[in-house]
Each structure stands twice: as C-alpha cells, then as structure tokens.
C-alpha cells in the first residue's frame, strides 16, 4: 500500500492508504477529522471542501496520494483555539447556518474566496457558491455572512 505524508492543520501526518483512497477518507477515517463532511459522494455538494496548498478543493475529488507533500487546512484548523476565524464569526453573527452539515465546506470555500477577492460583491459570492449546496436555509444569510466575513478579513490585514 502506498504511504502518503502531508501536513494537516500544521501537523505532519503519514498514513498508509490504498491507491483509491480519497483525501476526505484519509482525513475522516484515518486522521479522525470528521469536521469535513461527505454530503453527496458525487462532487456536487461541497460539504467536503478543504484547502490544499491554499486553494479550496473538494476533498472527495482528490486522491489521498495526490496530496503527497501538500499543506492541507481543514475546518478544525481554522479557528485559533476558542477564538473563531473572522469568517466563522461572521457565519455565527449572520445566522449563516442551521443544521451545520454544509457549514465546514461553506466556510472553507468562503475563506478562499476572500483571499482571492478582497471585496466580493453579492454576485461574486453567489457565483462562487455554485459548488456548495445548503439544504436548510437557502443562501441569503450565507451570502450576508460571507460578505461580512470577507470585510472582516480584509480589515484584519
């Protein structure tokens, strides 16, 4: 079985995986990081979004072996202890979540958007969320949260 070594949330991890093991399976089943969710298994819903070398990626679409040497950030690594990341805080403030299942993917995706576009418009945000599905609330408050979160991130720099 191939072995894969990568950095996850700042910590080095090595695991034996099968050729077919997906990055999300490595994260959830072998590293116990169950904050990253599998909602659809068909790369549509975006609940599994993590950052790989700074870019948001659907971790159910990447083989674990493809992440060899990569720097992976999951939802568990975003907050600074009990202090929420500005994007997480904005989701909380603007009621951008209900059941929370899509939330890790939404937040990770939103953080990547805010890195690439300091001041996204509502249109930019809605277009960016094409790959993230929420089945609870609709997207109104999620969009509001991301706008506020992006502003907070730009202000913090």
């Amino acid at each position: 079985m191939p072995s894969v070594t990568l950095t996850v949330n700042g910590k080095k991890a090595t695991a034996e995986v099968e050729n077919r093991t997906l990055l999300v399976q490595l994260l959830r089943e072998q590293l116990g990081l169950t904050g990253t969710h599998v909602g659809c298994d068909t790369s549509q819903c975006g609940a599994c979004v993590v950052h790989v070398d700074g870019n948001s990626v659907k971790s159910c679409t990447l083989l674990a072996v493809q992440a060899e040497g990569a720097n992976v950030l999951t939802i568990e690594g975003l907050a600074n202890g009990s202090e929420l990341h500005p994007m997480q805080a904005a989701f909380r403030e603007h009621h951008g979540l209900q059941c929370g299942f899509c939330t890790p993917g939404m937040v990770m995706s939103a953080v990547d958007l805010a890195h690439k576009n300091k001041n996204p418009t509502e249109h930019d945000i809605r277009e960016w969320l094409e790959g993230n599905i929420c089945r609870c609330t609709g997207y109104h408050n999620i969009v509001k949260a991301i706008k506020a979160g992006a502003e907070a991130m730009a202000g913090a720099r």
Partner: peptide, 19 residues
C-alpha cells in the same frame, strides 16, 4: 444559537462521524 460554535469549528457530531 448555542450549537453554532461546534458546527463552525467542525466539532458537530453526525451519524456518519461514528466510528
């Protein structure tokens, strides 16, 4: 909401997380 902190930090518990 009280539950948001755990959902936002990936600490929510869903059936699929049982191992």
């Amino acid at each position: 909401r009280k539950e948001d902190f755990r959902f936002l930090t990936g600490k929510g518990h869903y059936v699929d997380d049982l191992n």
